[in-house]
Design a protein around this nucleic acid. Sequence first.
DNA 1: CGATCGATTGAGCCCTCTCAAGAGAGGTGG
DNA 2: CCACCTCTCTTGAGAGGGCTCAATCGATCG
Lengths: 234, 234
Amino acid sequence: MAKVDTSLVAHLPLFAGMTPEALDEILREARSARYPKNSAMQGADAQCFFLLLHGHVRAAKTTPAGEQIVVRYVTPGETFGLAMAIGAARYPATAMAVDDSVVLIWPTSAWPRLVERFPALAANTLQTVGTRLQESHTRILEMSTQQVEQRIAHALLRLAKQSGKKLDHGIEIDFPISRQDIAQMTGTTLHTVSRILSGWESQGLVESGRQRIILREPHKIVVLAERSADSGAA
Amino acid sequence: MAKVDTSLVAHLPLFAGMTPEALDEILREARSARYPKNSAMQGADAQCFFLLLHGHVRAAKTTPAGEQIVVRYVTPGETFGLAMAIGAARYPATAMAVDDSVVLIWPTSAWPRLVERFPALAANTLQTVGTRLQESHTRILEMSTQQVEQRIAHALLRLAKQSGKKLDHGIEIDFPISRQDIAQMTGTTLHTVSRILSGWESQGLVESGRQRIILREPHKIVVLAERSADSGAA
DNA sequence: CGATCGATTGAGCCCTCTCAAGAGAGGTGG
DNA sequence: CCACCTCTCTTGAGAGGGCTCAATCGATCG
């Protein structure tokens, strides 16, 4: 269990307002682990919670019938698997590394003690969860009021903002993502996603391939995203 | 500013694990207010947070274009308007009393101090917000995978569970709710809701009128709700 | 008793899903 | 290093669920 360099994580929102000593004490309870690309990261029982240091993780929720939606993509610096903080004994979603990933892991059992000793942990986590709640509401709003094309545009712009790699001309989404994944983020089918991306590609808005998407004209995609349902006249 | 009886609120999740003295101190900072039916409860700036004591409140989110969705219905004992706890300066949604309602109101400015003095407040709120986050994800899952009829069935069952009044034969939703409201909860239009409810009514599953719905056969509605998209053969 | 707001219902259309092939890319084993 | 195989992506055709548009009815309130 190699010691984690505190300076790497001190600036994260989770640890806002903490003394170096406190941080040190918290990190002493964690271990780190590496997950290879495409490996599952958790069982059904919520025995651990995670902080992603490197890589990308996909959190997905599954229906009884086996259909999936992508809850979110976790980027470095973010926590996930916080079931216990919200009083759940089982994870409501499954996590999978979409890239080779490195995480810090705490046992769920440590959470109550840590919160007691460092109340800022609860306050900081509340802030994070609150932000996610608002994002969820935004997503519900989009699904209720926008056409598929607008939803896909918004989803890609969000991914680009969150995990975009600036290129000479455009922004590349920095991890492998398929048409199917985008469909599961926007409530549609991979076929429709494929058709729309093909359309955009022929207009030069994007460039894409197998699990790879580059936004070539982000600004034009913003315009698309904001176009309301009935303002689409050419 | 009439003093609030602590025994009325001591059992609420928000105050779990608190001493009577702590509770007393927290309540001293609150004032209570009454909002008549159909009155708006908040301005744009998040200057207060609320605890609903009596009545029902509808929280809704609006698009730039003016379309609305219902985020949730607040029932007595629940908090709302927690923008500041999650670090937002403005409310992400608007609140309106759908019934004559009574609330406790704290100024937003009191929150940091209260949390500092009573860390359990943050932990309890984290739990609440976490639960809401999961409910949001469930809603997204439903919107992605289910037909409108199933979504409406789920929404009504949830409302009945949360705010249902048991009748001799059936369950009545205990506050005024229109077709439009249900449409805004399920991501559809009032027309479709009306058609589906009319259908159910002719089968004797529900009985409904102006802003009023009674589930006459809750069990059959559960069956409807769980029917998957392609198992609908008569 | 009139006005207003919610509910109902019909007709027609269109966006998106479903079903169905097939092609290309990338990885793997011989 | 090549052949094969699997996984992703593409594209066409057709159908249908739900939306839009439009008009009317009914209840509630002032």
